[in-house]
Amino acid sequence: MRLDETDRAILNRMQDDLPLIPHPYAAIATELGIPESELLHRLSRMKEERIITRFGPFFDAAAMGGAFCLCAMAVPVENFETVLTKVNAHAEVAHNYERTHRLNMWFVLATETPEGIEATADAIERETGIEVLRFPKLQEFFIGFRVAA
């Protein structure tokens, strides 16, 4: 799917916070100078095409009393798929990426309690026999998550 200028303007605007009002799409459409129906149609299409992976509230597990933790493992290449299946089977594994390093599997644990991080990481170590290095955030230098479309 090719994105035209209007799609790009929508995508850029929709990465910013949406107002908490009964008709948020109408407000954004007015800002962008297009009818609400067109905005909704284009958004639906971008979602179907997976250009937008998700649209809605971003929750912070830590503010709910839970926790996030970046974890890494050095997985032998020959066992990669077996280990991957065991790691991904945990619902607490929110994102998982293969990366170019001896530590080749990097995932984020999101749990509803701080204890859940240690419990899940320990369980993965038991199940796979591989150490799970834990890199909780100490400080976040957050400005905004934006991709210019």
Partner: peptide
């Protein structure tokens, strides 16, 4: 509902209401 959501936002439980783009597709 909107009142509850505003409260969740003020407490940081909701960070923002927005789109998550797919970097690869872009």
């Amino acid at each position: 509902l909107l009142f509850r959501l505003a409260e969740l936002k003020s407490r940081g439980v909701i960070r923002r209401i927005a789109a998550a783009p797919n970097h690869y597709k872009l």
